[in-house]
Amino acid sequence: MKLSREEVIHIAALARLGITDAEIEKAREQLSNILENFEVLKEIDTSNVPPTAQSISLVNVLRDDVPQASLPAEDILLNAPDREGDLFKLRAVLE
């Protein structure tokens, strides 16, 4: 299964990636290879295997609703490219 150029551009746009023509072609080949590998898996007969959303057998891993300490705002803002007071400062987000 070969991805089209348009599909690669669409995927990049969804991930907000700006990519060059050369990168489009490279990604098209690599992503197509990955998909082809999945094609191989399709050859296995799974008609007797129920579909699952999980590869492990755990269920109901839950925590009690008890608040725990959070990190200090200073630590959280260490990741901020820019800040104003204790808020993250970003480029304008168009509504």
Partner: peptide, 24 residues
Amino acid sequence: TRSKMFCGCSADYASTAPNTHVCP
């Protein structure tokens, strides 16, 4: 709820200073 959906931070987000109920 008292805490958030997937972590133990307090879910009371409105009455506290910005970015004080946050964890990784």
